[in-house]
């Protein structure tokens, strides 16, 4: 037994180098270098960019998350790297390590830190969710976080109608005509009313940071305010059948003047189609009614006043 008894803990501590301090220092140096790099250098390139207020807020959100994740990942890597180098047994020798079953301080500290981190992330995420009006996510028929109506401009109401396998758009403030093009004016709040005629689709305006599932029979509302001119991609983000992959188009954020020009032109172009369409409604029932794609359906109960009945009749271009 004599030679094999593991060394007593006190003896071992004295002989061991100060592993914890070494690991801490390596981690501290790595984190101090990497975290600012991640935040300042990688951060501005994180998607979805800054094309709208919701996109910018998502980018900030991801920047913060990445910056927090960096030291966590580095700690694990540092620790395991260190352990694999210094805590090795001699090759081919079976020897036991010290019988440490636990360490109250370490365990409590670990639980405390992870819980605190999680609670912080929860608070931060909730703030970021509420602050820019639901963060561009679909909020269902009764949105609870809407943009603050501080600006005098009325928001642009666009209905996104998804079907297998394309998106069409109805401009509700402009008579409710329907088009396959998506143009948005810069610096004006946009309300997307996303619905579907058949299966579940997903309206994902990537650079705008907007994503809302298109459910049949549901008016899924999402908000954003485009802040930069340019092109953005629209893709379907829920599997909707074999041509799901081909269900995309491009949208454009243009200046207010260009938008109103485009709107007038499109309105005239689509005027003959308008009588064929069902009146604009929160969602449509393709199986019923005589419209081009069934009849419009009023929701059974809405907490907030719907834009649909009044805005359809309102003059073009607001």
């Amino acid at each position: 037994m004599s030679g094999s008894t593991p060394p007593s803990p006190t003896h071992a501590t004295a002989a061991q180098p100060r592993h914890a301090l070494r690991i801490f220092l390596v981690w501290l140096v790595l984190s101090a270098i990497a975290t600012p790099l991640v935040y300042l250098v990688l951060g501005p390139h994180l998607p979805p960019g800054g094309m709208s207020d919701s996109a910018a807020s998502q980018q900030f959100d991801m920047k913060v998350l990445t910056a927090i994740a960096t030291p966590v990942v580095l700690f694990i890597w540092t620790y395991f790297g260190y352990a694999l180098i210094f805590f090795r047994s001699q090759r081919g020798v079976i020897e036991d390590g010290p019988p440490i079953r636990g360490n109250r301080v370490f365990q409590a500290g670990w639980l405390g830190i992870t819980t605190a981190l999680v609670l912080f992330l929860f608070g931060f995420g909730t703030y970021e969710l509420i602050h820019p009006a639901g963060a561009g996510a679909g909020e269902g028929p009764n949105p609870i976080w809407s943009p603050v109506s501080s600006s005098s401009t009325k928001p642009l109401e666009v209905q996104v109608i998804a079907q297998q396998w394309q998106f069409t758009y109805r401009y509700l403030n402009a008579g409710g005509f329907e088009t396959t093009q998506l143009y948005l004016p810069v610096d004006r709040p946009v309300v997307f009313h996303v619905t579907s005629l058949d299966v579940i689709h997903g309206f994902w305006a990537y650079q705008l940071g907007v994503k809302a599932d298109a459910n049949p029979g549901v008016d899924n509302v999402a908000f954003t305010t485009p802040t930069q001119l340019g092109r953005f991609e629209v893709r379907c983000s829920e599997l909707c059948g074999i041509w799901h992959g081909a269900m995309y188009n491009n949208g454009y954020v243009v200046s207010a003047g260009a938008f109103s020009q485009w709107l007038t032109k499109e309105q005239q172009r689509h005027a003959p189609d308008l009588p064929l369409l069902p009146p604009a409604a929160p969602y449509y029932n393709p199986g019923a009614g005589g419209g081009f794609y069934g009849s419009g359906q009023e929701p059974n109960a809405t907490a907030t006043p719907s834009p649909f009945p009044s805005s359809v009749t309102s003059p073009a271009g607001s």
Partner: peptide
């Protein structure tokens, strides 16, 4: 982490 602390790791 705790299990590998000052362990005799065999790869």
């Amino acid at each position: 982490i705790g299990t590998l602390w000052r362990a005799k790791i065999r790869i």
